[in-house]
Design a protein around this nucleic acid. Structure first.
Lengths: 140, 140
DNA sequence: TTAATTGCAAAGTTTTTGCTACATC
DNA sequence: GATGTAGCAAAAACTTTGCAATTAA
């Protein structure tokens, strides 16, 4: 469903603010916080309120344009919905975030489905651990 | 390292409040929020402040007695550090939490290790999705 | 004794809500 | 023109901090 169709069928409207929020999420390289989006948006349109950003992120999620995730802290993070599907590896030490191709997670997802009847949503799930760089090298 | 040793070497002390917070986490069946811990603690000792609970959770994590995780919302959740290792399946619809045996996740963990050099910490990772009960039954 | 810890109050951070005016369809 | 949306201000939800009094070691 196109954005136009989604707007029409949901009764939602496109506004300057909504467009700016959507563009900000689309242009973001990684997963961004509402605050980071607000900052980008305000660069072009300084009077836009944080509440407008939050309300638009919700609206855009309902429209299927963006997705939110919770990584390793209590802040909500957003990314575009049409990016390639991927899982998230979050390093507990440095906070760094790596994307993984779904194939690496697919067999696990199948197993959870078969054994637990659970449909895993890999795009929303963060796997916490320690990344290559932060791993302690065993002393020789 | 025993709790006694950890206390001694860190200069921390054991107090009635710290004991109650630790017991509350240990007795909790699942992963509990600070608010839930505070509620349990206040059942025995009504004047204990939320800040005391928060400070003790941090202290107990430094002591290696409890661990915090972020599941599918922005609330920090806590559990005992010495529970059997397990993964978490969190249902996006009902909020329910299911534990999975590590074996179901082990092959994924190996793959992440081999391909990304990432040591997944399955005990602290939440996999979000939709549980059996909440799955929409396809209409016939 | 001395330094960690408590309870209280206040403030910080992130997010939500109520309301009126305005913009979009 | 009807109603979804913006901006503002206030509040909610969760967590942290400063400080004087208390308590563990």
């Amino acid at each position: 469903m196109s954005l136009q169709d989604a707007l029409r069928s949901s009764g939602k409207r496109m506004t300057v603010q909504r467009r700016l929020v959507l563009d900000a999420v689309r242009q973001a390289r990684h997963h961004v916080t509402a605050e980071e989006i607000a900052k980008r948006v305000r660069a072009k349109h300084p009077q836009i309120d944080a509440s407008t950003v939050y309300r638009n992120l919700q609206a855009l999620e309902e429209l299927g344009e963006v997705i939110h995730t919770h990584l390793d802290d209590r802040i909500t993070r957003w990314h575009r919905a049409d990016s390639h599907p991927h899982g998230h590896l979050v390093c507990r030490v440095c906070g760094g975030e790596t994307e993984v191709r779904p194939i690496a997670l697919a067999s696990m997802a199948k197993r959870l489905h078969d054994e637990h009847g659970f449909d895993a949503d890999l795009a929303h799930s963060a796997i916490v651990g320690i990344c290559r760089q932060c791993r302690v090298v065993p002393s020789s």
